[in-house]
Simulated scan of single mutants.
Amino acid sequence: MTTTDLCVKMVIDRWNGSIDNLNKHLTALSDEQLQNEIAPGKNRGIYLLGHLIAVHDDMLRLMNMGEKMFPELYEPFIKQPDKVVTQIPSVAELRAMWAKQNDMLQAIFAKTTTDEWFSKHTAVSAEEFSKEPHRNKLNIVITRTSHLQYHTGQLVLLN
């Protein structure tokens, strides 16, 4: 295994570990607990779950690895703050979406080569990428892992 391969493995292992960690906490929370606010006046757990699905869904497009699975989640969970959109999927529906999405992402990530991880993502032009090669697909996973860990820390407060 090359050093570059090892770096990719470390990032993807951290992504998978972070997903597993959130799943552990999500399993421990009831549907009713996910209706609660993280703190008074803050986002509810259900909103954070929908938000994570919507953000991870956009990774597919951003990394040029497929179309969004749940484009209907963009408006209520990214564009709008919690409680503005009154019609959102149930906790059970979001849990199912989360599981389906994670299975699909894991399958895509497993077959992505090291060279593909270091290729440009769709939000950077070829010219920009030639000057800033760190703006690659693997970097998207790194930033989304941090985002995932941040919201996992919030969801822990619901226990």
Rank of each mutant, 00 (worst) to 15 (best):
T3V: 11
T4V: 11
T4F: 05
C7T: 09
D13R: 12
R14A: 12
R14I: 05
G17C: 05
G17K: 12
I19F: 07
D20I: 06
L22K: 07
K24V: 09
H25L: 05
T27C: 06
L29K: 09
L29R: 07
L34Y: 09
N36Q: 15
E37D: 08
I38S: 07
P40D: 12
P40K: 15
P40I: 11
N43S: 11
G45D: 10
L48A: 15
L49C: 13
I53C: 01
A54H: 00
V55M: 03
H56M: 11
D57R: 00
N64E: 15
M65A: 15
K68W: 00
M69A: 12
M69V: 10
M69K: 13
E72H: 11
L73N: 00
Y74C: 01
Y74S: 06
F77Y: 03
I78H: 00
T86M: 09
Q87H: 05
I88A: 02
S90E: 03
S90F: 07
S90L: 04
V91P: 02
A92H: 07
E93P: 01
R95S: 08
R95P: 02
A96F: 03
A96D: 04
A96S: 05
A99T: 12
A99V: 08
Q101L: 15
N102Q: 13
L105F: 12
Q106R: 14
F109C: 01
A110W: 04
T112S: 06
T113N: 03
T114E: 03
E116H: 11
S119G: 03
K120W: 04
K120Y: 06
K120I: 10
K120R: 15
H121C: 13
H121R: 15
T122H: 06
A123R: 15
A123N: 13
A123C: 07
V124E: 05
A126D: 14
A126H: 08
F129N: 03
S130M: 15
K131L: 10
E132W: 11
R135W: 09
N136C: 15
K137V: 13
K137Q: 14
L138M: 15
I140S: 06
I140C: 10
I140K: 09
I142S: 06
I142M: 08
T143C: 09
T143V: 14
S146Q: 13
L148I: 06
L148R: 02
L148G: 00
L148A: 02
Q149W: 06
T152R: 06
L155K: 07
L158V: 10
L158K: 05
L158Q: 05
L158W: 03
